[in-house]
Design a protein around this nucleic acid. Structure first.
Lengths: 307, 307
DNA sequence: AACCGAAACGAAAATATCTTTCATGAGTGA
DNA sequence: TCACTCATGAAAGATATTTTCGTTTCGGTT
């Protein structure tokens, strides 16, 4: 690995931004081995402290070996420990200069309703920030390009993710694209069989292991369609069949705050980004289409303006 | 110079803070030799770029030698180049996060995808904050109470709001309550006719003027059910038939960012609050029901962990 | 102008740090 | 139980940083 390229300050390959690090740790933790998790945890817990440590120091601190530390750094998206260390220094500086440490307490059974509102709002804001920070714009751009030029698009999702799938579908239809979000898994596969090169199939699943969603994506993939996966687990089975993977952030969940809640927030942001990106790319046709759909809806509302 | 002391994480000697670096360069410049000035200048000019360079790299860039770079680092108050580099990374991160006010502008057709992500995330965060701030906790509490004790609940919504309605329905079902979200307006009315005192009807409409949603709520209202409206217009027709009104926030929309987008975010937060509130109130039965639904879903996912 | 001394400077050696390789052992499924 | 895979750390190998030390430069002095 040469480091010389960085000198130009030109096109920097997408190293994870410091801000995204905490989110990345959470996202990738499940796919880590025990030792690596210890390292990741230490790093997320005390960025400043870890930035001051050498590989050897961090290895000792976490009771692991240098090799494991380097492996962890790699998994987090850096070429090696050195770069992770720089990112940690950046993160530490950011945390230092202002923004809150972001420690939310869980929602308790006896929290007053006002607290519930505050905590939920805060958590969802956090989720949005994490998602935005962790989103790979290259993958996103590729997915947008594929969608914008697709002959037709299928969107697969089940349960909570199914609603997100429908949301995207509604939006795409609004700008004149052809999109479907089959709600029945069997129909999804039936649909997928019809896809071919130039079409796009998009799977939305938080766990990345939802068979009912993977199956149609696999079929589409094998048919030559461009496939996109929106998932919280970038190493999960669904990504096998995905040309482009968009990662949603995973925040800690609790009994009263199911994972579905934050994953939905995260997924919707991604979907919105996709939509806006596509609308930009197809502006010529999208703008009139959007206007037309407003028009068509107007008469279904009572008066045109305020009641 | 050993670096091992850092391992303790104990009393960190006072390294110059990153922010002070630029000032320090200016202060110390006069006392520097020519070569060192070149190094200091490069460092002050482009912290981010220099942070990416090794001693050798920076030496080459400034046309000096490694030794000079290290001497400069020393003069600036760091034990060696390594620490200067970390400080530079911190400074870069701070500068990066500092300049973010560009996102207040609307999304333009030619915005790069990264900006789109940042702006959308920012807007949605804003929407959440506004919604949380504007939510009437008394009304919310009342709605929660009604839902928690309802015999059955109907949720009405069309289009984007329809998805929110389904989201709420899914959640309520998960904790063992009886809820429906008829997607067909006619079915909605048919359903509404069945409601009576002790039941809850909940209408979700951003404009508050969506006839297809108002109608079933009216019917439910007249049948004596407790009615709730989630709307962005607290003075719109739908509130006529609503015992409790929950107001969502309305943020500015633009051509590329339809109102549906932020109203959906806002509505979902309200719906989440309702859900958590209800889950709290019915904790005895909700907790096992939630657990059970997790259980039931587990087998639809491949393995629990890594693929 | 020639000389001297001090300081600046860089090449290269010495050291520290990071990365890779490889052998070992723990855990897993047949 | 056995074969197998995978996680793991020790140590070798590769880089980066720091130190050493000799050369060069510059200012002043004779």
């Amino acid at each position: 690995m040469k480091e010389t390229f960085a000198g130009s300050g030109g096109t920097r390959a997408s190293l994870p931004a410091p801000a995204a690090l905490a989110a990345k740790v959470r996202t990738l933790a499940p796919s880590m081995t025990r030792s690596m998790q210890r390292v990741a945890e230490a790093v997320a817990d005390d960025p400043a402290g870890c930035a001051a440590l050498t590989v050897t120091g961090l290895a000792e601190l976490t009771g692991t070996s240098e090799a494991t530390v380097v492996r962890t750094a790699r998994l987090l998206g850096y070429p090696g420990y050195r770069d992770l260390r720089l990112a940690l220094a950046g993160l530490a500086a950011q945390q230092q200069s202002g923004r809150a440490p972001a420690i939310t307490t869980d929602i308790a059974v006896d929290d007053p309703i006002a607290d519930v509102v505050a905590k939920l709002a805060y958590d969802e804001q956090q989720t949005l920030a994490d998602t935005a920070a962790g989103l790979d714009t290259v993958q996103l751009g590729a997915a947008v390009a594929a969608l914008a030029t697709a002959r037709r698009t299928d969107v697969y999702g089940i349960g909570a993710s199914g609603l997100v799938a429908q949301d995207l579908t509604q939006k795409l239809l609004r700008i004149g694209l052809i999109a479907h979000a089959p709600s029945d898994p069997h129909l999804a596969v039936t649909n997928a069989v019809q896809l071919r090169a130039g079409d796009v199939a998009l799977a939305i699943t938080h766990s990345g292991s939802t068979g009912d969603v993977i199956e149609p994506l696999r079929v589409a993939f094998e048919r030559g369609a461009t496939t996109v996966a929106i998932t919280g687990r970038p190493d999960s089975p669904v990504t096998q069949y995905a040309d482009h993977v968009l990662t949603t952030s995973t925040s800690r969940e609790s009994e009263l705050r199911p994972a579905a809640m934050s994953s939905r927030t995260s997924q919707l942001l991604v979907v919105d980004c996709l939509f806006v990106g596509v609308a930009q790319r197809t502006y010529e046709s999208a703008a009139p289409a959007l206007a037309a759909s407003y028009e068509a809806l107007a008469h279904r509302h009572g008066s045109r303006g305020r009641p």
